[in-house]
Amino acid sequence: MSIVLAFVVPVIAVAFWWLIRQGVMSKPWLETGLPEAVPVRSAEHVGLGIFLAVVGCLFALFGSAFVMRMDVGTWSSLRLPPIVWANTAQLVLASLFLHLAFVSAKRGDRAGPRRDMTIAALATVGFLLGQLLAWRELTMEGGGLTTSPAASFFYLLSGLHALHILGGLAALGLVMSRGGADGGRLRLGIGLCVAYWDFLLVVWLGLLVLFLGWANRFVEICRGVLT
């Protein structure tokens, strides 16, 4: 459970830091009148932030389960099909183009964001198709769902990740379809998509680290230091 604790503890630490900034040390029974206004962020940003914390917790828990499962019974690490590298590149590309869209939306450009978002969406679809190919390749090589625990985890986690990406694509489609009219709403929509894509990219890289077996080496080093 070390991975999930490594995730939850910083989340709680950030919450504490935020609470202290929000005045949990004040003495409300002595203070009447109106407080000075505290600057606020948009509800959408806060909502997405909390949602990403939940998604992060979900994948951290899967990571924990993965590492715990590695320590018991039979375990053989997986030979990932090489296409996952191309997929990863596409996801990076999608993230990059969303950033570009955000920058040009900030400049007040109308056509630029649209083009960049379309490229990002296409790259994301490419990522999803590539993941399907990776699944096929793995199955053809005799690495079906039940053949090894690592394979089971691979299908489950990449599938769940893909589901989250699909949800993101739906949101991106919504931003693109109603984005043109209002510059402020467009910026907000793209900004949220940027955060979501970056986050899912980080999650995917984390999953790759797990599947490639780099995590066990890291865990071993940690254990060596601790004992």
């Binding site: 914390a53 939940v54 917790c57 769902l145 625990p149 489950l156």
Partner: peptide, 27 residues
């Protein structure tokens, strides 16, 4: 806030158990 961080654990456990039951994995 606690529930948002804790319920994913049940979610993970349920999904993996469902895989074990339906698809024959051995998590």
């Amino acid at each position: 806030v606690m529930a948002l961080l804790a319920f994913p654990a049940l979610f993970v456990a349920c999904v993996m158990l469902l895989f074990d039951r339906l698809l024959g994995t051995s998590f």
